[in-house]
Amino acid sequence: MSLQNILNNWDKYRKGHEAGGHHVYEHMWSMVIDLNKCIGCGACSVACYAENNLAVVGKDRFEKGQAMHWLRIERYWDEPNLKPTASDEFQQHGASFLPMMCQQCNAATCEPVCPVAATYHTPDGLNAQVYNRCIGSRYCSNNCPYRLRYFNFYSFYETSWPEPLNLQLNPDLSVRDKGVMEKCTFCVQRIRTAKDTARREGRKVRDGDVQTACQQSCPTTAIVFGDMLDPESRVTKLWKAHEVELGKTAQHKQHPEKRGYRIFEGLNTDPCVMYLERVREV
């Protein structure tokens, strides 16, 4: 019985999220994005639309701010103008790009505010979103400092994939109806498949077994994905090389070549995505 369950597992329920959802992780999926390599082509975003059944909302709804882009390429034109020549609208060196997907925070601000616990932390270090449980209070999106959660304002499936486009939908995950929140899952269906394959073959998940759609489609390999708990994985090595650590609110390092940083880590959200700063020409 469930009441029994809550009494027996009181310790589990009682513990807060002071140090994140879980204390023992099986994996810690993480990403490294090298902004130096990013050319802003948007292939990752397109791949994400195809992989995750993201609704194409159309121009009108996009302008109303009702788009569903789990992975968005943000363009910034406000890079310091290093050669103040004229009243250029844009900088000499063009825009800077910032691909933003769910940061899979270990101390996610969206998790504690959900009234029905539709978003929670998995032992994989992922910030999961259970569509069936979501009632659409949208508090999680309001409390996300990155604004990386998107809401199904309409039954997008009715118009997004007119026949025969519905045949290109990915059968590995659901098509969401109106009224639920969704966001980047780090391609959880691919992680699931890789874990199942590894278990079937009686081995651990190896680095490179899981490739996210965005990583796969990036022409400049700016995106690296892997398990932080695997000491040999590429992400672990990159995080180490750039002296960025999980569980900190500020990284203290001096060397200019250590470009790693996490967005808004001062808010103690403990995101799992590390960005490598873009090096600017002087």
Partner: peptide
């Protein structure tokens, strides 16, 4: 038809 017709949007949830 969904919440969008009230012109709620991202980030005005």
């Amino acid at each position: 038809h969904g919440m969008g017709y009230g012109l709620l949007n991202w980030p005005h949830m």
